[in-house]
């Protein structure tokens, strides 16, 4: 502590060394490898139709996974999103059918349905969040509970069968999934826009920084006058709202909802978040990584369908291996810190 060393080298302007961080590049490398394999195996892989198909199908899980990134970064978890999506979809179809009867088919019915889906998602997220933050119930347990509740509610709404949107409405609503702008499908555009917004929110706003702080050490966040409960509640509300948006894009695809709608979406979303490099225990999250994670998972499925090297029935097994590898990678770099 001599006076000479009191003028530290660190006072010099930030010098950022280019660090090759394995967690940063690993998901990207995996994605590139998958694309290369796809190109080698099937010339149709990079076709407009196939790319659109893969991306549009990824959009639902992707939109949900963006919200999940915030929840997990803040040290939380939400297992209920798959059932929540099914329930919101069922509710939306039911109400739209009722409105069609009273108002006749038309755009107002669609707008009412969209508004309802967004509100229902927001409300469902709020219920999860308020019970976790105010009643102090463990997120895993609580959302395990609501997962069962929503799944059962949609089965009940559909009376064990399928809820289908009326024919005219289905035709009118179809373009929201199948249509697009400049040849890019709407779900892809919405997914891309939300991903960019999410990435900016995570990296450059107080909310994103607060999420990471809470996940890193909740007590430190509280002592630093971060409104811990409000931020955590907000992550669940955000996730619920994104589930609503995903449903808005999903319903026009099939025009129906049943007890199996959105099955295992929660696991795919969580897996995508983790593959993307977000820490499962919270404290660090990145939305672009989640997007890469979503793409990796859907490309695996797509590749297996396009080629007959490996049976498509092994899709789950390969996805499982990727998830485990991602977590092993995380743990290794975590120990090196």
């Amino acid at each position: 502590m001599s006076t000479a060393s009191n003028s530290p080298a660190s006072a010099a302007p930030a010098q950022r060394r280019p660090r090759v961080n394995l967690t940063v590049i690993a998901p990207l490398v995996a994605l590139v490898v998958l694309i290369a394999i796809g190109m080698a195996l099937n010339p149709n892989f990079l076709s407009y139709a196939n790319i659109t198909n893969v991306l549009a199908r990824s959009a639902f899980i992707g939109i949900i996974a963006i919200g999940m990134t915030f929840v997990i970064t803040a040290g939380g978890l939400d297992l209920s999103v798959g059932s929540m999506a099914a329930f919101v979809a069922g509710l939306m179809i039911l109400v739209m059918n009722l409105l069609t009867e009273s108002m006749g088919p038309g755009l107002p019915v669609i707008f009412a349905g969209i508004a309802l889906a967004l509100l229902a998602g927001l409300a469902a997220g709020f219920i999860n969040g308020i019970l976790i933050t105010r009643a102090g119930i463990e997120a895993f347990i609580l959302t395990l509970g609501t997962m069962g509740i929503y799944r059962s509610l949609v089965t009940w709404l559909a009376d064990g069968g399928t809820l289908s949107l009326g024919y005219e409405m289905r035709e009118m609503y179809r373009p929201v999934y199948y249509g697009g702008l400049f040849g890019i499908a709407w779900p892809i555009l919405v997914f891309a826009a939300l991903a960019i917004l999410g990435e900016i929110t995570m990296r450059h706003t107080a909310f994103g920084r607060h999420c990471a702080a809470i996940g890193s050490n909740e007590k430190v966040a509280r002592y630093s006058s971060v409104a811990v409960l409000r931020v955590r509640l907000a992550t669940y509300v955000l996730l619920g709202t994104l589930v609503g948006i995903a449903v808005v894009m999903y319903v026009p695809r099939l025009g129906s909802a049943s007890a199996t709608t959105g099955l295992l979406w929660e696991l795919e979303a969580i897996a995508a978040v983790i593959i993307g490099g977000t820490l499962l225990k919270g404290g660090f999250g990145r939305v672009w990584g989640t997007v890469v994670g979503v793409l990796i998972l859907s490309l695996i499925g797509n590749l297996l369908n396009l080629t007959d090297v490996v049976s498509p029935y092994l899709n789950g097994a390969i996805q499982g291996v990727v998830i485990i590898l991602a977590v092993v990678l995380q743990r290794n770099t975590g120990a090196a810190r």
């Binding site: 890193s216 050490n217 966040a221 002592y223 660090f284």
Partner: peptide
């Protein structure tokens, strides 16, 4: 425990 985020 309450002052600093050690991994940040």
């Amino acid at each position: 425990g309450a002052g600093l985020l050690l991994d940040k």
